[in-house]
């Protein structure tokens, strides 16, 4: 799995296809500060309804297609609870997700 990411929004972004993002949450680490939601430049995240072990609402991904993998959410998170990876291809990602689903 590639961990390559783009820190800044390239000026010629429109010409290129935005890579698919895999936004990973470690929900039980989240302390609910909301920085990732508030400071995401593309409004990818929102507060979720679920309550984690810390009694806060971790973020949820609402606009995954908008994510440019800028990584700001990952960089600003004080709790190492969110990070973004570039999805190599749809197929593999689904498998991963399913696998994780099953583990739950």
């Amino acid at each position: 799995m590639s961990t390559k990411k783009l820190w800044r929004k390239p000026l010629d972004i429109e010409k290129f296809k935005v890579p698919k993002a895999e936004i990973c949450l470690i929900k039980d680490r989240c302390k609910g500060c909301g920085y990732c939601i508030q400071f995401c430049p593309r409004q990818v995240l929102e507060e979720s309804e679920e309550i984690n072990v810390r009694g806060v609402h971790p973020p949820k991904v609402v606009n995954p297609e908008k994510c440019t993998i800028c990584g700001f959410c990952e960089a600003i998170c004080p709790d190492f609870a969110i990070f973004v990876l570039e999805k190599p291809n749809e197929k593999k990602e689904t498998k991963e997700a399913e696998k994780n689903e099953r583990k739950k």
Binding site: M1, K20, A21, E22, I23, C24, L25, I26, K27, K60, V61, P64, C67, L85, K87, E96, A97, N100, K103, K104
Partner: peptide, 8 residues
């Protein structure tokens, strides 16, 4: 679904 509770 792009979001996941990750094991990674």
């Amino acid at each position: 679904m792009a979001e996941q509770t990750t094991q990674i």
